[in-house]
Write a protein that binds this DNA or RNA. Sequence first.
RNA 1: AGCGGGGUGGAGCAGUCUGGAGUGCUCACCGGGCCCAUAACCCGGAGGUCGCGUGGUUCAAAUCCCGCCCCCGCUACCA
Length: 497
Amino acid sequence: MEDKFYITTTIPYANAPPHIGFALEIIQADILARWNTLHKKKVFFLTGTDEHGTKNYQTAKKQKLTPQEFVDKNSELFKELTKALNISNNYFIRTTDKKRHWPGAIEMWRILKERGDIYKKKYSGKYCSGCERFITEKELEDNKCPEHPSLNIQQIEEENYFFRLSKYSDKIKKLIETNKLEILPEKWKNDFLGLIKNGLTDVSFSRDIKHLPWGIPVPEDKNQVLYVWCDALTNYLTGIGFPNKKYEKFWPADIHLVGKDMLRFHAGIWPGMLLSAGLQLPKKIIVHGFLTIDGKKMSKSTGNVISPLELAKKYSSDSIRYYLTRTTPFGDDGDFSEKALMERHNNELANKLGNLVSRVSTLAEKYGIEKCENELALKNLISDWKSKKIENSRLSTIKEHFKNYELDRALSEIFAFLDICNEYIQKTQPWKSKDKKILYELADSIKSASILLWPFIPETSEKIANVFGFKISISELNNPLKISKIKKSEILFNKIK
RNA sequence: AGCGGGGUGGAGCAGUCUGGAGUGCUCACCGGGCCCAUAACCCGGAGGUCGCGUGGUUCAAAUCCCGCCCCCGCUACCA
């Protein structure tokens, strides 16, 4: 039984403030991290920002800032987001951090060079003279740079270093096929295997300093800087201390959580680098989808980009966490709409959970609770009443969903139990009977639900734990709630609108 | 073009892999109950030929196979 759990998110490019898609990623990672914390594992959760590259350099120039000032400013916004969303990351890595990141990135280069996997070659790319930088296929619109549509894109060449990724093509393919490197959901594994069926090609690994003046210098070549792969991907190691030996405490990563567009780099280039360097591969790559906004693709040009920082001013972190998780099926795209967020906040968090806690805590304050066997939870959560088996229970289903990373399903299963609690209080009418045992069953059931909900909505769970007096840990599920003086809970979720 | 995803009561979604009465969720609508609670909660009801073929397999298809139509995404350098 492994007792450590290392999870990472991708590190977003610090060229712009965070958008809602990244919020989805850190929330999902946080839920998995907290689920493991709940199980008493030694968790390390890493996120951060990718801060080099021409785009940052150019944008800084436009804003009359030094590149460092510019990325400092944006990186701070990502840090703010982790706080606004109550993210439990253990460290926040920045690729411009010369103490924490640079030595490891340079060391990675050095090792790959030593293996003979880095060589010089002519690189040819699409270049916009307006931006003074290479631009990617993806950025092009009608074969023009969107920012300088009047200019023609040039094909220009420079000499730089390449990484011999092709050498590891077969090995990587085999590792993925045999699930030594697991890609989930499986459709993304198949997607990637289809993509590389003709093999992986070598990748450009550095840039001439003329075209990329903002980056980590290549060891022993002043005219070149590391290109994004060796720089950014290495964060997963430097974030836990590499090249200092202490990184071995958490490496290999248990999970790299990535957006679907990032899969190819994490399943191709990154494993190639690790194989070359003789380091262990991550165990799993979990792929999440994108968010559409009101059913439409999010893009700057249509102006429907949602800022999670703005959203967090209006809604609690738990509402946002709950909504995004509930609305996004594992590995698929989800849709964001503020109307739906508000509805779920009102109907599910306020009416179902909040109101239940409110009425039970009020009654418990008035009439008290008396310890008894909690048949409500026993029947509907802990074990399957009919077969008397734990395997068929709702709790085992929830655990199964977690194991499969189906967070949306785990969440709806927990809420199905809360529905049963609401039915129960309605049917037994403890406000009439003043039955302390019924109230105990309800309070103890709320305890169980709250513990299971902690990874999703930690702030609320902790509030509930205070009201009923229990500890948040998975082992507490089996311990009956201790009797304490219960006071009416504050309103957990105020209705919106 | 290729690859991938989708078309389920008025809206938005699960369910399809592992076939079994159209089951479920969040709303909208109609009727009732409750009065502890955040005008919350509970019960009941109306509403769908599960894109099309009136296709195939099967005792049985939303689910598997075939054909067709429509929507959307991706096609390698950063969610």
